[in-house]
Design a protein around this nucleic acid. Sequence first.
DNA 1: AGATACTTGACTAATTTAGTCAGGTTTATA
DNA 2: TATAAACCTGACTAAATTAGTCAAGTATCT
Lengths: 141, 141
Amino acid sequence: MKLTSKGRYAVMALVDLAKFNDINPVSLRDISLRQGISLDYLEQIFSKLRKKAIVQSVRGNQGGYVLNKKANEIKLTNIFDAVDEKVKTVQCKKESKKGCNGKLTKCLTHNLWDELENHINDFFEKKSLEDLIKDNTERRI
Amino acid sequence: MKLTSKGRYAVMALVDLAKFNDINPVSLRDISLRQGISLDYLEQIFSKLRKKAIVQSVRGNQGGYVLNKKANEIKLTNIFDAVDEKVKTVQCKKESKKGCNGKLTKCLTHNLWDELENHINDFFEKKSLEDLIKDNTERRI
DNA sequence: AGATACTTGACTAATTTAGTCAGGTTTATA
DNA sequence: TATAAACCTGACTAAATTAGTCAAGTATCT
């Protein structure tokens, strides 16, 4: 059970963006340097974030990205959703009609995995970008 | 972020085992048939469970496996630990001395991933095999 | 015009997963 | 004591996923 770096990077990059988001847009190049994430990879990630209206791009010289909403309105759920980071505990959900493992009944542990998914998603729905920034400035080393 | 089938199967198999665990040990063959999990794969999984003293094996004809503790003493944590299903949110933990991403400071979101790991592990520590069986018999279809 | 920055899509190496396969050993029971 | 049921072990592998890289643009500010 692990988090992929795409999801992790997306969050890291947005925290960075939110922190340095004053008058000027923040360039991916800067984020790349500060966070140690490849520029090409960041571009892929931000393309997705833009499509989901989490950030806005500013083209041209001195361009970059800006948050498209207030930091307290951006939840982890939104970010993970944008970059296709999903919580998957089990396959059997998709084949909705049938039960699990091709049987007619629900598998013995079906409810458990549902609970687990909800438990994790709860966490993602409660945390906003604002929380993360606060957390970070308060506890800086 | 997804659960691997090794972890999922381990839990399914143990619930099955606990359910059919009366006088006789339960054979992997039966579990394999009931749960639709390959026998060879089950053997790998049970070998690990046995090494961690979660189950006990009974050899010979009419042999099989038996729980080695009471169902309420076996937590999901124990099971996942036995089969190396780990919750990993980030790599940077291992290189304990240094910060994250090879930098000197903690990465911006370090605390977040710690919290997430704890949040998930909490769930695993609270759920016991007994809970799962109860859950299952109560809500059977 | 030129620099800077975003945009898109194809491609790929490495890793992980989810098993399979082969060849054992042990032991209850007939 | 034969034998079948069941466990035990380790090596192997195909498929999927991840974590990017690479190339070739397009847009826009100065």
